[in-house]
Design a protein around this nucleic acid. Structure first.
Length: 489
RNA sequence: GGCGCAUUCGUCUAGCGGCCUAGGACACCUCCCUCUCAAGGAGGAGAUCACCGGUUCGAAUCCGGUAUGCGCUACCA
């Protein structure tokens, strides 16, 4: 009988939701959903000094955007609450006191000044840094003396002086640490808040967490946690340390690598399903070929065994490709719906709002397979929405043509389409295409001239679809405008 | 400095002793399709599997060492 899987994502609201943190959340969520367990969100707000005001909101928003729903935590509650560590202070104090009573922890009165000097001295002598345990064996009298001086102590864990701790990490295998390399870490700070180490162990136990999936940077503090579990008589959970996400210089991903916050990716027009898929593949793979996974496939096939151990560089190029692939797979309606907010925001101010939905629905399919992000749609389609096209008249004269032949071409086109009853792709095609031959032009030349006349640019969606979307009136106007530009040359 | 971990094409990865003259994907190049751009199709180039030894009939795969990289080494998480 195996225990129910209960995993948690435990962010600290000291910054915005970094893709690295989100990937950790994602793996926890995937693991929970795969095994029918619970996914819990717990807020580790024990660092009062570094707290950032709207970080919590951004973190929860990021999770929701990706569809990482949690079974217990902020906003939803649960039987193991509260889910904010700042509301669980008495629990940590009790645990710390118990450890002191049992002789597994002690009060330390050393000032931060002294600790700083001690570390500097150790660095100078090239000795391993770490607390020198000055307060570990204080007598009652010495303690009373310090108390009388009004010093508020911290509580430190009494790490065994010898021996070692070994554990089996689900991803890294067996790992061993000598106790001699671990110093007496702080459990309770002088402001009464616990450190990560204490709060983590107490909460993971109380919340009956079965597996701790966290970033690799925690690997070396795991023995400390194990020591605490034993001292407190708690059964430790299973550990799985996840490989890190790196920037393109192989260093830990950070601000200077560009976007790192998940909310920035949303703003840049990446789809949540892209991010979900891409982030999962950073450190996990199913086989030697599958790249695109739906949420369902992901949860169905996810497993800890297939997580790799090496840090993965965040490859923006591949993200772009994948986002394009997801955009192409959207239904035209869905694509339009998602593009709309980006259009509202990104189109020039002079374009009248609100946008005509009928028109937007006509235009969007023309760029769906060309967009790599939603944010580039306004730029791609701007000419559909503006009245006046602003371009260099010279652009109208394409390869091996001159002013005269360009004018002739446009005049011919205008005559051809002027009396068109239906102005759709097919009728335009049958009306205009033959013109090239008749005039002794290559289709590329004719179409190129027309393209610039109707869109103001040399690169645009297919000509006739574009003109059909533009409508007869607007197309005619633009051809005429192009003609006067040419004539005034 | 100490401790721990890792190391397969530029990048993400497959590989868990013979199927590997190492497979896939992104990016790159060529060609096809084609009104431009995309998309799509067909090819190509790109990894002496960090290095050096060892084990074995046989190693990318196992062992040891070296190098390099990363993480931790806070009253931060």
């Amino acid at each position: 009988m195996t225990k129910q899987v209960r995993v948690r994502f435990a962010p600290s609201p000291t910054g915005y939701p970094h893709v690295g943190n989100i990937r950790t959340a994602l793996f926890n969520w995937l693991f929970a959903r795969h095994s029918g367990g619970k996914f819990i969100v717990r807020i580790e707000d024990t660092d009062v000094a570094r707290k950032v005001d709207d970080a919590l909101e951004a973190i929860l928003e990021g999770l929701k955007w990706l569809g990482l729903d949690w079974d217990e935590g902020p906003e939803v509650g649960g039987d193991y609450g509260p889910y904010f560590q700042s509301q669980r202070l008495s629990l940590y104090r009790e645990a710390a006191e118990r450890l002191i009573r049992q002789g597994n922890a002690y009060y330390c009165y050393c000032s931060s000044q002294r600790l700083k000097e001690m570390r500097e001295e150790q660095a100078r002598r090239k000795q391993p840094p770490g607390y020198d345990r000055r307060c570990r064996n204080l007598s009652e009298a010495e303690r009373a003396q310090k108390e009388a001086e009004g010093i508020t102590p911290v509580v430190r864990f009494k790490t065994p002086l010898d021996g070692s701790t070994r554990f089996n990490d689900l991803i890294w295998g067996e790992v061993v640490f000598d106790h001699s390399t671990i110093d007496d870490l702080v459990l309770l700070k002088s402001d009464g808040y616990p450190t990560y180490h204490l709060a983590n162990v107490v909460d993971d136990h109380l919340m009956e967490i079965s597996h701790v999936l966290r970033a690799e940077e925690w690997l070396s503090s795991t023995p400390r946690h194990l020591l605490m579990y034993h001292a407190l008589g708690f059964e430790p959970p299973q550990f799985a340390h996840l490989p890190m996400i790196l920037g393109d210089d192989r260093a830990k991903l950070s601000k200077r690598h560009g976007s790192v916050s998940i909310t920035e990716y949303r703003e840049q027009g990446y789809l949540p399903e892209t991010m979900l898929n891409f982030l999962t593949l950073l450190g996990w793979s199913l086989d030697d070929k599958t790249e695109i996974f739906s949420r369902i496939e992901l949860t169905a096939s996810f497993s800890l065994e297939r997580i790799s151990r090496t840090g993965a560089i965040f490859n923006q190029e591949k993200l772009n490709w994948m986002n394009g692939a997801y955009i192409r797979s959207l239904s035209p309606d869905d694509f339009t719906r998602r593009a709309l907010p980006f259009l509202e925001k990104g189109l020039p101010d002079k374009v009248r709002r609100p946008l005509s939905m009928d028109y937007v629905r006509k235009v969007m399919p023309l760029v769906q397979e060309r967009a790599r992000t939603l944010a580039e749609i306004p730029e791609l389609t701007e000419f559909f929405f503006t009245d006046e096209l602003d371009y260099e008249p010279g652009l109208l004269i394409v390869k091996k043509m001159d002013r005269e032949s360009s004018i002739q071409a446009l005049v011919a086109v205008r005559n051809r389409i002027e009396h068109l009853q239906t102005f759709d792709t097919m009728s335009l095609e049958t009306a205009v295409r033959p013109l090239a031959d008749e005039m002794g032009l290559k289709t590329g030349q004719l179409f190129g001239t027309l393209r610039v006349a109707t869109t103001g640019r040399m690169v645009a969606p297919p000509l006739f679809e574009t003109m059909a979307a533009l409508g007869k009136e607007r197309s005619m106007e633009r051809v005429s405008a192009a003609l006067s530009k040419l004539r005034s040359l």
